[in-house]
């Protein structure tokens, strides 16, 4: 991809000078801490004594972290599928309407605001007052219109509150999936779809046999990004439930271990688990990068 002109490789000093500050910072803030955190995960809560794999053993047996694992898995499934499917659907459907730009801006807008802000927006949507009193939360008002009793969306466990949090994540990230998939969709040669239609294929068949295969690599990239997001999910849970009522996730649990329980060994072990979970993604993106460089 890059054609480096030979004569330009002048003065190695310049290269080191230009790249140095950035590499130094990245080394200090990302590379060194990664190794240090791995080391700390084998020490006790005050990082004084070596405890072997005790922190990991506790993570895999304590109910608090196990519940966080389960919830992260639920996020992984529902959030990833939700954003990709909705993003794909919107990419295809908005291509067929005149107000495409407006609809896409609306769906994309949550990407601009903070997860904390989104958390407050949705906490209000989920607001609960007892039956018989005016509902001020949109969702319970919709239920009231249909004559149903209000639901305490953020408290009802185990499914409703976790799905309610995941819905906020989907609300934020669907626009991201849509934008990327839409660009890819518009890159598919129209003649292919047209000729299939002329041959009598219906829209679903066109999507299944032409659009989707063409979009598959992009879908994979988007799904990967979403999986990374799931592992890091923190703000939404921290602001909306702080992991109470069975909604804990790993990143929030790590924060608690760090600041509430001052257990640095345990917190480090959780961070290492997050890191390990992301290593396959790192390797894939490195390999994809190398393949691109060859072409």
């Amino acid at each position: 991809m890059i054609k480096r002109v030979r004569s330009m490789r002048i003065g190695r000093g310049w290269g080191a000078l230009f790249a140095g500050p950035a590499l130094l910072l990245v080394g200090l803030y990302l590379v060194y801490p990664t190794m240090n955190t791995i080391y700390l995960s084998f020490l006790d809560q005050r990082s004084e004594h070596f405890v072997g794999l005790d922190n990991y053993a506790r993570i895999l047996t304590s109910e608090a972290t196990l519940s966080a694992f389960r919830n992260n898995l639920l996020w992984l499934a529902v959030f990833t599928v939700g954003t990709v499917v909705l993003g794909l659907m919107l990419a295809v459907l908005t291509d067929r309407i005149k107000y495409e730009a407006v609809a896409k801006s609306i769906i994309f807008m949550p990407m601009a605001i903070s997860f904390a802000g989104a958390g407050v927006i949705w906490k209000f949507v989920y607001a609960y007052t007892p039956p018989g009193v005016n509902q001020i939360g949109l969702l319970n008002q919709i239920r009231a219109v249909f004559g149903s009793d209000p639901v305490a969306w953020l408290i009802a466990r185990p499914w409703i509150n976790n799905l309610a949090l995941i819905a906020v994540g989907i609300w934020i990230w669907t626009g991201f999936a849509m934008v990327i998939l839409s660009a890819a969709y518009k890159g598919i040669p129209r003649e292919l779809m047209e000729s299939a239609r002329v041959d009598g294929a219906n829209e679903w068949q066109v999507f299944r046999s032409i659009s989707f295969p063409a979009l598959a690599p992009t879908v994979a990239v988007v799904a990967t990004t979403m999986m990374i997001n799931v592992l890091k999910v923190f703000d939404i849970v921290y602001v909306m439930t702080n992991g109470n009522f069975g909604t804990e996730v790993l990143a929030n649990r790590m924060y608690k271990e760090m600041f509430e329980f001052r257990n640095y060994g345990q917190a480090s072990a959780i961070a290492v688990v997050l890191f390990l979970a992301i290593i396959p993604v790192m390797l894939v993106s490195i390999r994809r990068f190398r393949e691109q460089e060859v072409h």
Binding site: V26, Y29, L30, V31, Y32, P33, T34, N36, T37, L40, I228, L231, K232, A251, M254, M258, Y264, A267, S268, I270, A271, V272, L274, F275, I278, V281, M282, L283, S285, I286, F289, R290
Partner: peptide, 18 residues
């Protein structure tokens, strides 16, 4: 290549040491 790999690293891994 290290930089590309670091694109995905969760910040959590660096919080305690920093």
């Amino acid at each position: 290549i290290i930089v590309v790999g670091l694109l995905a690293v969760p910040l959590q891994i660096s919080l305690i040491p920093i």
